[in-house]
Amino acid sequence: MYLEYFGCDYLPFSLTPNTQQYFGAQCHHDAIVTLNHALVSGEGFIKVVGEVGTGKTLLCRKLLNEMPQNIYTAYIPNPFLSPGELRTAVAKELGVAITAQTDQQAFTQIIQERLIALHNQFDHVVLVIDEAQALPVESMEALRLITNFETETQKLLQVVLIGQPELDDKIGLPELRQLKQRITFSCELKELNAAQIYDYIRHRMVKAGYSGPEIFSFEACEMIQKATRGTPRIVNVLCHKVLMLLYGQGQYYATPEHIRIAALDTEACLPVTLPWRLDCKAQWRTAALCTGALCTLIICLPLIQG
């Protein structure tokens, strides 16, 4: 496609979470710092919430990839599980097997023995659950009970919940008030402003191998922010389409018109118009041309009549 045209090694705005292209906006940086601090403390639940497309899965992968060797990690990416299925998934991630016939008492004993064994090898054991808003209420309560395992000095299992804002609504339910009280750290991933989008786009292009002149001006990024509301995933879709337009037209600079056309072709985008100052410039140019044409007509009219 346009990779060779722009000198990129791979698609700079792919939707697949790639930790090599991690940008680290302020909210993401704050979340990583908070998570690292919380994991060292070794207690309670940690909650990370963000709207769809704000980079939660990418943050999750970065966290897992950079986890210190003294921390044992378990990961559940799809938590739409019944309490029994959740217990089975947790046991599997911790390296033990249970059957459908394993009752609650036997499960408790097996998991507690495994957690104690892991703590003899590691400083902390962490369970990371992505898309945590999908956890049924009954399964959340089962998860809380699993975290009851502890020694005289520390909890045997720490949990990181990563999910959409619906996670806050679910945790706020009266029947989950005990779980809510155990959340010791909480982070929120937010949308990007125009300045962050400008840096984000440049970062992604350079990481992909682009080394040419600026393609997306700050003015273009202001339009992109309005069209996408600053959601990184939608920014990626929009920028990908703009690069396709530029490649098709043999150009290297994204104009407001390119942004407008790409936004119209993207369902998740809001429609955008040309910036006011560009409209004014266009109007002034049109007025100047009309004035020039009128003056020429006035000057030439006597000659034509003669």
Score class of each variant (00 low, 15 high):
Ala91Met: 03
Tyr252Ala: 03
Leu15Cys: 01
Arg177His: 06
Leu143Asn: 10
Leu176Gln: 02
Thr147Leu: 02
Gly172Leu: 00
Ser211Ile: 14
Lys170Arg: 08
Leu118Arg: 02
Ala38Pro: 07
Ala74Arg: 10
Leu294Gly: 12
Ala293Asp: 05
Lys190Phe: 05
Leu189Gly: 02
Leu173His: 04
Pro83Met: 09
Asp265His: 13
Glu4Lys: 14
Gln105Pro: 00
Ala91Leu: 05
His124Gln: 15
Ile71His: 07
Lys180Val: 00
Glu51Asn: 11
Pro17Arg: 08
Leu118Met: 06
Ala227Ser: 07
Ala25Asp: 15
Tyr252Trp: 12
Val237Gln: 14
Leu3Arg: 14
Arg285Trp: 11
Gln105Leu: 09
Val206Glu: 13
Asp265Gln: 15
Val48His: 00
Lys62Tyr: 09
Asn18Ala: 03
Glu85Ala: 14
Met223Lys: 03
Glu113Asp: 15
Leu127Val: 07
Glu175Met: 02
His29Arg: 14
Leu118Ser: 07
Asn65His: 08
Met140Gly: 04
Leu64Pro: 01
Lys190Val: 10
Cys280Met: 15
Asp199Ser: 13
Leu289Asp: 11
Leu94Asn: 06
Gly248Met: 08
Ile32Lys: 05
Tyr72Val: 01
Gln154His: 14
Leu86Pro: 10
Asn65Cys: 03
Asn70His: 11
Asn70Leu: 01
Leu145Phe: 00
Lys56Cys: 04
Leu145Asn: 00
Thr88His: 11
Val242Ile: 15
Arg233Asn: 09
Arg233Pro: 06
Asn65Gln: 12
His203Gly: 04
Cys239Ile: 08
His37Pro: 00
Ser139Val: 08
Val137Gln: 08
Thr255Asn: 04
Trp284Gln: 13
Thr57Trp: 09
Asp130Tyr: 10
Leu238Phe: 10
Ile215Met: 09
Glu113Met: 12
Leu294Asp: 04
Glu85Asn: 12
Gly84Thr: 10
Thr54Pro: 04
Val126Gln: 09
Thr228Gln: 02
Thr255Arg: 11
Asn148Ser: 02
Cys295Asn: 12
Glu257Met: 12
Glu51Arg: 10
Gly212Ser: 07
Thr273His: 07
Val128Met: 09
Val125Met: 14
Glu43Lys: 12
Leu156Trp: 05
Gly55Cys: 06
Gln196Ile: 04
Glu66Cys: 01
Glu141Pro: 06
Ser14His: 10
Leu264His: 12
Leu301Glu: 05
Asp123Ile: 03
Val125Gln: 13
Val235Asp: 02
Leu59Ser: 06
Gln158Trp: 09
Gln154Glu: 13
Tyr75His: 14
Leu64Glu: 01
Gln164Phe: 00
Ile162Pro: 05
Pro213Cys: 03
Pro256Tyr: 09
Trp276Leu: 11
Gly163Ser: 10
Pro302Trp: 15
Ile183Lys: 02
Thr228Pro: 01
Gln20Asp: 15
Thr296Phe: 15
Lys155Gly: 08
Asp168Arg: 00
Ile171Val: 05
Gln20Glu: 14
Phe122Asn: 09
Ile46Asp: 04
Ile224Gly: 01
Ser41Lys: 15
Ser82Lys: 01
Trp284Asp: 11
Leu94Ser: 03
Asn36Met: 09
